[in-house]
Design a protein around this nucleic acid. Structure first.
Ligand SMILES: [Mn+2]
Ligand SMILES: [Mn+2]
Ligand SMILES: [Zn+2]
Ligand SMILES: [Zn+2]
Lengths: 137, 137
DNA sequence: ATAATAATTGCACTTCCATTGCATTGATTT
DNA sequence: AAATCAATGCAATGGAAGTGCAATTATTAT
């Protein structure tokens, strides 16, 4: 079991109190979070710091960005040893129109998408909208 | 061959000069357009009017909105008799990272996506990023 | 340990796009 | 022609993303 310090260090991210707290926050949340979510959770901290922290995490492949169509960027922790850049590794994202939560469906990979001749596919973003398991019960 | 007037009237949209011009603009463009694109094409018209016109078109299912991940909403004409709301009717969207154009791949339908138990899929949005046919040639 | 250096954080400000209130103009109905 | 309703234009707002710079904190070198 790795500690948060070890995880950050292994990704060449300097360990600070703020970064550890935000990392912990992301682990505890099971859904993707917006910058506002983080802001609300850490009201004493400055928005910019939180913004830059999440951007650092993104750069170092600790979180990935999710565009679920709501217009507000969300972030979620990457799987261990995931390679966000590799197309075949990408999973579905589910956006619940009832509770407004966005969830990584890490087990559900994006199927092979064929595009017309001349088009070169480099990346695929797939968002399913509907009702999540908690809301459909 | 329907005239633009007839098309607008059939969708219960009052015919105005502005609306006809914007409709014509959308027909001539083969790619999805942003509000700024429309703005640049009609510099004499007010932004708000253009905005409300496109929103009216959207409400009446003349155009559909596309979120290609650039953060800027784009719009494209719907196919004739398309039912944007029906999931199985949805097509792929392709965003070229080179020329920044977004294209409806109306022939390429989104494959059936399975989600875990308890989740109810109502809508799927799929954007492929890469190089378009014009840029890859 | 102290000084020098580099990275992080906080504050203020900016930009960009989307959206709304309200007055005005224009079209339609009575 | 008057009354009514929709469309347009102008001004302003709101929300989110992003940046410059100074202050603080951590790291490294002397
Ligand atoms: Mn994810
Ligand atoms: Mn389309
Ligand atoms: Zn839900
Ligand atoms: Zn292109």
């Amino acid at each position: 079991m790795e500690t948060i310090e070890q995880i950050l260090e292994s990704k060449n991210i300097r360990v600070t109190a703020m970064r550890m707290l935000i990392y912990k926050f992301l682990v505890e949340k099971e859904v993707a979070v917006t910058l506002s979510d983080i802001e609300n959770a850490f009201e004493k901290a400055d928005r910019t710091t939180l913004y830059r922290t999440i951007k650092t995490f993104e750069e170092k492949d600790i979180v990935h960005q999710i565009d679920d169509g709501t217009g507000i960027t969300k972030y979620a922790l990457c799987e261990k040893d995931c390679n966000c850049e590799i197309e075949t590794d990408l999973h579905l994202h589910f956006h619940c129109t009832n509770c407004n939560k966005t969830i990584c469906l890490t087990e559900n990979k994006i199927p092979k998408i064929t595009v017309p001749d001349g088009f070169i596919s480099e990346n695929v973003n797939l968002v399913v909208k509907g009702i999540c398991d908690k809301c459909s019960g």
